[in-house]
Nucleic acid binder design. Structure first.
Length: 268
DNA sequence: ATGGCCGGTGGAACCGGA
């Protein structure tokens, strides 16, 4: 079963590029981020006519996540638990019903910039960096629940985290950035440390593997990228991992997203 | 980070992104 994650940066602008990639890559399941659309405006027919079941969790203008699945989806949940006042659409999960059930979580983790700190180095309450770190605490809590269920499950999406220096072409440029600051990396590592396997790094070592290239300053032409889209597997899912790849060439096409898909192949 | 952008909104600039 091939399961992909793709931050499309706006469904309206990405209809052609997304459908072309779906037709070629033939993923069984895709989690999408930044659909930037309300549920009613999402062009679900385009995917239904390709055999996908469609579940969305959108909002106007920003954020928004979705799941496309060729197999039936059950027990769909929208919104990351832990803060009822959080209005941002960044989390959707569902169970894919096949021979064996697989729980799939799609996430769009907050960017966190600009980083605002008090004189004592504490993130300013109400600021974007504090929101990012608080969101990651909620993610850790949900992640721990997932592990406790002891079933094949994964959390895939745009984590907006550069885990290690080798995950950026120019790591020094990101040292103080919300994507790579020590607090951000530590929060990501704490989640992995609960018992997850980071799919890509479990199979591919070394620098030069990226999932995002900025539209600005010729970043793509310089291969000035960062690796910020990740797939985290529970032990029961990690045991089924056959492959994990980044579809890099997508970035060089017409009207691309600034992210490219990452996918895993699981033996189920 | 950066020389250089892009998408959405709303119908011009501006916000948000990473």
């Amino acid at each position: 079963m091939k399961i992909a994650s793709f931050n499309i940066n706006g469904i309206k602008a990405r209809v052609t590029a997304l459908c072309d990639w779906l037709d070629e890559a033939q993923p069984d399941v895709v989690v999408l981020q930044e659909i930037k659309s309300v549920d009613e405006a999402f062009p679900r027919e385009l995917f239904e006519e390709r055999g996908y079941n469609v579940e969305t969790h959108g909002q106007k203008s920003f954020n928004g996540v979705a799941i496309l699945s060729k197999l039936p989806l059950e027990d769909v949940r929208r919104g990351l638990p832990g803060d009822d006042s959080d209005e941002q659409a960044r989390w959707i999960e569902a169970t894919v019903v096949g021979k064996q059930a697989l729980r799939i979580c799609g996430l769009y983790l907050p960017n966190g910039n600009p980083v605002e700190l008090t004189e004592t180095g504490v993130p300013v309450a109400g600021g974007k960096y504090a929101y990012k770190l608080a969101w990651m605490e909620r993610l850790k809590a949900r992640a721990a629940e997932l592990l406790a269920e002891e079933m094949p499950a994964l959390m895939a999406g745009d984590y907006n985290i550069i885990p290690q220096a080798e995950d950026a072409k120019r790591p020094e440029a990101w040292r103080e950035d919300a994507l790579h600051r020590p607090e951000s990396r530590a929060a990501f590592q704490r989640i992995v440390n609960l018992g997850f396997t980071e799919a890509f790094r479990s199979r591919t070592l070394g620098p030069g593997h990226y999932t995002f290239w900025d539209y600005q300053a010729g970043a793509w032409n310089r291969d000035d990228g960062i690796r910020i889209d990740h797939v985290l597997l529970t032990p029961q899912a990690a045991d089924l991992l056959r492959d994990c790849q980044i579809d890099k060439e997508i970035r060089g096409r017409e009207k691309p997203s600034d992210h490219v898909p990452i996918w895993v192949d699981l033996d189920l």
